[in-house]
Nucleic acid binder design. Structure first.
Lengths: 254, 254
DNA sequence: AATTGACATTGACGCTGCGTTAAGGTGTAT
DNA sequence: ATACACCTTAACGCAGCGTCAATGTCAATT
């Protein structure tokens, strides 16, 4: 049996364009070209195409497929195992994504009367929270995976009410910090109150509190531009001020 | 606070190229352009970028994000719900993929001494099996979901030994069918034996056998090019012959 | 013999979300 | 004056084809 492009295409359930493309990239060349320049495929090409489509359905890239089908000695099983690893990782990512989307949906449904502005404020806050979590990744080296894992678990389980509380706390930190900044004294009463509020805010994310970690985070606020910009957006120098207040609060600096 | 591209980029953790691209597609335009043509962003743009990145992390496409962030009245929650549906479907697909890959790995590991040719023969057979399953999808309308679901479950649980058996059975069907075709008599002994073997082969895929379904599948072999081509590849007319034999075997035609 | 309609061919652009040169202007410190 | 960091636009490249466009071929009908 011999097939023209369209015959083979309809047989295999692909488009003729796909066959031309496979010819182009050298993954499946026709058995011969007839006098009019038509591509003519034979049984061997049908079989090969079936292999190709098989791997394609598994999500293997065409370049990898090429290696598999053009070199019969190639270790297909090994390629598949590697491919499986990729798929599993992809699934974990996907699950995280879904969880985040659902959390967001739940949040937005719970406060149906929120203005758009408030909504976006919420999102913005969440971004900052995410940054805190990212920081968590960097703290893993210092304080171990356990701390961070528990932090994330805690965040996952946060209810809507708790979310409102933590948002409020964050605002209080900002306000108190702004007032304290005016005094210019990181050891002063207001600054220490800000540091204390910041600690309470932190406990929403961290499973257990330690002075060292708190002080480390404070230093991070100064070292990492992303945080510096966030705290400095009203008054430059605020991040540094907060760090000093926290260092004093935690007794790392007197 | 005002930001140039790089300031904003490092603040938000994206590349300057990304910012220029967002400007280009109109998703995030700078607050103003200075006398030298530099892009200058303000606080409002920082906030907007944070929204954009938030949605981006959720895997939402930039065009959808554009609708969300440029039209503040847009129903973001609805968009998210739709997005969630897509993600869930994606996950189902991914799970199917993983299952298939693992099945294939198990198969190839079980028969380490298989030549490559045999291996690929196995894959080819599997393709046909897949087609049977696809056909199953079409049969759902006729015989209900239950039949097909059980069929798939059965296939999932097929052991390596069973796989070998079913492969052997498929070969026997082919051989007997080829011999029977020579006699030209679909009611003859050989043709009826082929139909019987075909029935046994089928029971590996279908949870319960019915004459009607068997006859329906036989008709499908003639109606669907993919199957026709498979059975006709040696001798054209074989698919039709098999259908007739099965119709007689099942008593749907005398 | 000419027309029609279904098939075939080779280009070549488009899609997503940027990464990555390339070629050049600007700002600031030395 | 020179160096060096930072800015600009323009353009190609990536995967895997979909989708025209312009043109040639085959078989059947007029």
């Amino acid at each position: 049996m011999e097939y023209t492009v369209q015959k083979l295409a309809s047989l295999a359930g692909v488009s003729t364009r796909t066959l031309r493309y496979y010819d182009e990239i050298g993954i499946l060349k026709p058995a011969r070209i007839n006098s009019s320049g038509y591509r003519i495929y034979g049984q061997a090409e049908v079989d090969k195409l079936q292999q190709i489509l098989f791997y394609r359905e598994l999500g293997v890239g065409l370049d990898s497929i090429k290696e598999i089908v053009t070199a019969p000695s190639f270790d297909g099983a090994k390629a598949l195992r590697e491919h499986r690893e990729k798929l599993l990782e992809k699934r974990i990512q996907l699950d995280l994504l879904i969880a985040n989307v659902e959390k967001t949906i739940a949040l937005s449904e719970g406060r149906i009367n929120m203005s758009n502005k408030e909504k976006f404020e919420g999102f913005k806050k969440k971004m900052i929270d995410d940054n805190e979590i990212k920081y968590g990744k960097e703290i893993r080296q210092k304080y171990g995976n356990d701390t961070v894992d528990k932090s994330n678990a805690k965040l996952q389980n946060m209810t809507e009410e708790q979310y409102a509380e933590v948002s409020k706390l964050a605002e209080q930190v900002q306000e108190t910090l702004a007032d304290a900044f005016k005094t210019g004294d990181p050891a002063g009463e207001l600054a220490q109150k800000a540091a204390d509020l910041h600690k309470h805010w932190l406990t929403y994310y961290w499973h257990e509190y330690s002075k060292e970690a708190h002080a480390g985070l404070a230093q991070m606020y100064v070292d990492d531009e992303r945080f510096t910009a966030y705290y400095d957006k009203e008054k430059p120098g605020t991040a540094e001020f907060l760090r000093d207040a926290i260092l004093i609060y935690t007794g790392m600096k007197k």
